Amino acid sequence: MKEDINNDRILLERLKNGDISCFEILYSKYSGKLYNYVLNISKGDFYLAEEIVQNVFVRIWEIHRHIETEGSFGSFVYTVGKNMFLNVIKNRMQEYLYHDYIIEHASELDNTVEKEVEYKMLEEQINKLIEQLPPARRKVYILSRVKHLPNKEIAALLDISENTVESQLTKATRFMRENLSPYCEIIALGLFQFYVS
């Protein structure tokens, strides 16, 4: 095992078979590097760097049976970390824009209880529509739009091509938009963007 510690391909093969000691070795080997990388791109956000490192390795454990052993594990770790970082930034920006919108339109949104009920109804409608998607398309849609996984990860996880992922997402998104059009007024307040952007 000693000579295998430096060979990521061997560690990954064993990880695919559920060897937790190999996971721990990979974590020790790459968590510090990933932490420094995220710290650098986040301009010194220690909490975010720590959170992303933990989330990356939780994700790796969740998909350990499907990880490809051909490419560089280091590149894979950085890619997943970067995608998680970009998702955090995107979500923060959406929250910021939504907050600005609320402030700007506060007088129009004075009936918050009614709006909350409308949001709940819209959320229920979205969940019903997701359930109507064919199983494979639903899985792709949930991984992309609900779990926020990038297409490359979805393709690896489901063992399909990125083109198939994109095709399924396009069809699912079109279906969602067509069936949510009666809810345009609520969607305009920002909830639609979260689910079908």
Rank of each mutant, 00 (worst) to 15 (best):
R59A: 10
I60G: 07
I60E: 08
E62T: 13
I63T: 12
I63G: 14
R65A: 12
E68R: 15
E68T: 15
V77D: 12
T79Y: 12
V80L: 14
N83G: 09
M84G: 10
L86Y: 08
L86Q: 08
V88L: 06
K90L: 02
M93I: 05
L97S: 03
Y98W: 03
H99V: 02
Y101F: 08
I102H: 04
I102L: 08
I103N: 04
H105A: 05
A106D: 09
S107I: 09
E108Q: 04
E108Y: 01
D110I: 07
N111S: 06
E114R: 03
E114V: 02
E114I: 01
E116V: 02
E116H: 01
V117Q: 02
V117S: 04
Y119F: 03
Y119M: 03
K120M: 03
E123G: 03
Q125T: 00
I126L: 02
K128D: 00
E131R: 01
E131F: 01
Q132P: 00
P135T: 07
P135K: 07
A136G: 04
R138G: 06
I142K: 15
R145K: 11
R145C: 11
R145N: 13
R145Y: 10
V146W: 08
K147L: 14
L149W: 15
N151T: 14
K152Q: 09
E153C: 06
A156L: 12
L158H: 05
D159A: 13
I160Y: 08
I160S: 09
E162F: 09
N163C: 09
T164W: 12
E166H: 10
S167D: 11
